[in-house]
């Protein structure tokens, strides 16, 4: 931090100001001049190589052991091999919706329109029809959920009086080639 002045045009009115500023910044940032030994880069080089090599040989040992089927529990990498090996999800995570079923396989939904009403994204569209059982009154003739619009707020699940819609499939990889394919109907929602 010496001879800072030489880096600035002495004629410039801001030079003195800038130098003072830099000196103050240097002081505040708690930095210091490197010693000669540190300037050779060797200590940091060696400690850096030591750190990366430690990881390298540790991981390599376990990768090789895994080839022989030993020590499978200790992982050689912190990554998940995603499509084959999904990450563990929290049970309260809101994932893709599903319609729960009654014992006879029909949807639990009674088409009360609560979810359709509460939905802030307006992605649910229910067509109600009369259920033959007078105790149930209504059932959804069609239950359309546009995942392209859904914001995954979970209001529909909270508001449902019949526990008919849940967001616990654990599906996150919702990708389709067209917007139309993002629109899920009753059949697709009841698949799992």
């Amino acid at each position: 931090m010496k001879n800072l002045e030489k880096y600035f045009d002495p004629k410039s009115p801001f030079a003195a100001l800038r130098v003072a500023q830099m000196k103050r910044a240097w002081k505040q940032s708690n930095r210091r001049q490197l010693t000669w030994w540190e300037n050779t880069y060797l200590p940091m080089l060696i400690s850096g190589i030591y750190l990366t090599s430690k990881h390298f040989f540790y991981n390599l040992t376990f990768h090789i052991l895994h080839l022989f089927g030993i020590a499978k529990k200790t992982k050689g990498a912190v990554t998940y091999q995603y499509p084959e090996q999904p990450r563990p999800l929290s049970s309260r995570l809101r994932t893709r919706h599903r319609l729960t079923k009654r014992e006879d396989g029909s949807p639990r939904c009674v088409a009360c329109m609560m979810c359709e009403t509460v939905c802030p994204a307006r992605c649910i569209e229910i067509t109600a029809a009369e259920h033959p059982d007078p105790n149930i009154e209504k059932y959804p003739a069609e239950f359309i959920l546009d995942l392209g619009k859904c914001v995954y707020c979970g209001f529909c699940v909270e508001v449902c009086p019949e526990d008919a819609i849940r967001m616990d499939t654990g599906r996150l990889d919702i990708a389709e080639y067209s917007r139309e394919d993002m629109i899920y109907d009753k059949k697709r929602l009841m698949e799992d």
Binding site: H55, F56, N59, G76, A77, V78, T79, Q81
Partner: peptide, 10 residues
Amino acid sequence: KQSAVMQDRI
């Protein structure tokens, strides 16, 4: 591969 193993990847 070496960079991956070094950085705890596959």
